[in-house]
């Protein structure tokens, strides 16, 4: 029986992530945990999170989770969600915090001056609601999900990936930003699959069976 660790570090609502995983994988063992041993033993790891980056890193340090998370991100199917995606990168403008540095790149605030649509109407920050996720190519995590499907977002910062090869999807708001990255056994998304109805549940179902390679 496959086990999935949902990393609990005090940042936001993990219940919905766990519930959504239980929904798509009734036979899997879903552990909401902050225990390094359980994370190390799990077959797969989900790193969720909402809130601010400096708090995220502080809470990880408090629970001695930095090293176990980096190890998991290097060794097994690993899904980062929202803040859990952003924290994988080198640096965030939010609180000028260093991230885990698992992936090269930076996290930036949506720049107020650029936040107007083609009609001149002001775009709100946070970027909140359902937006189109444009896939850059085939990946096992996109199986059964039509290109440009809408997923639910809520965030004020976005990832600027250090290497274009890792961009698995982008989204327009109003400029294209990286809404999903794929690097070896890591897949990370800015949106919330656990709140994105059927498309989101499909992505989570894909993660449950993903072997952690780009070929699937």
């Amino acid at each position: 029986m496959s086990s999935i660790a949902v990393v609990d570090y005090g940042m936001g609502n993990l219940r919905s992530v766990a519930k959504a995983l239980e929904h798509v994988a009734p036979d899997a063992r879903i552990l909401v945990t902050s225990d390094a041993g359980e994370i190390a033993r799990a077959d797969r790891v989900v790193f969720p999170g909402v809130g601010a980056m400096p708090d995220c890193i502080r809470e990880l340090e408090l629970r001695h989770l930095r090293k176990p998370l980096i190890e998991a991100a290097q060794t097994k199917p690993f899904l980062g969600i929202c803040l859990g995606m952003q924290a994988l990168f080198d640096f965030s403008e939010e609180g000028h915090a260093a991230g885990l540095g698992v992936l090269p790149g930076q996290v930036k605030l949506f720049p107020a001056a650029a936040m107007y649509d083609a009609g001149g109407q002001r775009l709100k920050v946070p970027h909140m609601g359902w937006n189109e996720v444009q896939q850059t190519g085939a990946h096992p995590m996109w199986a059964g999900i039509p290109d440009a499907s809408r997923f639910y977002f809520v965030h004020s910062y976005y990832v600027e990936a250090g290497h274009p090869d890792m961009v698995a999807a982008f989204t327009l708001y109003p400029f294209p930003f990286t809404s999903a990255v794929a690097a070896k056994n890591i897949f990370a998304v800015q949106f919330h699959p656990e709140k994105s109805q059927s498309a989101g549940l499909r992505l989570l179902a894909n993660f449950v069976t993903w072997d952690g390679t780009a070929a699937g």
Partner: peptide, 8 residues
Amino acid sequence: MGLAKRII
């Protein structure tokens, strides 16, 4: 091609 308006 962008953020959808929401019905709640």
